[in-house]
Amino acid sequence: MRRIISLLAVLALLLSGCGTDKAPTVRVGVALYDQSDTFISTMARQLQQLFQEEEQGRGIKINLSLSDGQGSQTLQNEQVDRFLNQGYDIICVNIVDRTAAAVIVDKAQAADVPVIFFNREPVEEDLRRWEGAYYVGAYAEQGGRLQGQLVLDAWREDAAALDRSGDGVLQYVVLEGEAGHQDTLLRTEYSIQTLTAGGMEIEKLASATANWQRSQASARMNQWLQQYGDAMEAVFANNDDMALGAIDACLSAGMTVEELPYIVGVDATEPALEAVRNGTLKGTVCNDAAGQAKSIVALSCALLDGEAPESAVELEDGKYVWLPYASVTAENLEDHLKTE
């Protein structure tokens, strides 16, 4: 019985499929881990614009659907399910829990819909489960190195400006991102490593997670300010939101811009660039949101057209699109804004 019904359904589908001759419509589903994340919302906006441009350029319809996972992997899985059920042609996932990618890859494989992960890198083994799974992101390692380099350069240029205690040792704190996120681990690890490799003497006063959030970072910094006061000479934040949170805390504690510790972030979001401009944020590392968005769009289009993805983007291992970081300081801010 069921078979007959499904047969009829298929027939009906075929018939209805033959009847339409509108402009081809492709559906792209983008699942974001949390839209309140500044970097992610920037990327979402860029994706939206790029797809809209692509649509005009190619004369096809691209229906882009954004979903906000609100930091819940269960919710995100549901959203991905919905995309797959509605017959989306391509799915971009900014996964909430990077250890949970296997489920999504399997689902996508079952539905034969290519899935592009971005910004939050799934575990390599999960990504290897299917050749239709890709990752677009930046080398967290490089981000960390560049962040470290910023501080190292500043130290080499004018160590006294940083070393307020004058003991020749840089006292620093680290505001870490979400536990378990690859960027948290790698950025922290390599920024510090760069300093030590550069021959600096450093001392970690404290480190704590602020879950990428400005408010939590601000509260944490507030606590540290009471605890360490001026002893903090540098603040390494795993992203700009947290760096801005630290600045918020310092400013609301009554510090002037000059009195601020040397705070560096990662991502180069708009508010962060604004902070670089007014000198509160000493430097940030550009996590190329626009570049990532472009790569995602290019990769998506290649997959939709059935072309080899290699022709559209530089692909490592047939899976990874890596985008470089670039450091941004007050000196090269204008250049950076121009290239944007």
Binding site: I4, T25, R45
Partner: peptide
């Protein structure tokens, strides 16, 4: 009789709606 009450076969075609906003950003 057997086919008709099947809800899946009764589903209607989705309507494609274009929402033209006034802003640059949906946020």
């Amino acid at each position: 009789l057997a086919v008709q009450p099947d809800p899946a076969s009764r589903s209607v075609e989705p309507v494609e709606l274009s929402v033209i906003l006034r802003e640059t950003d949906t946020a």
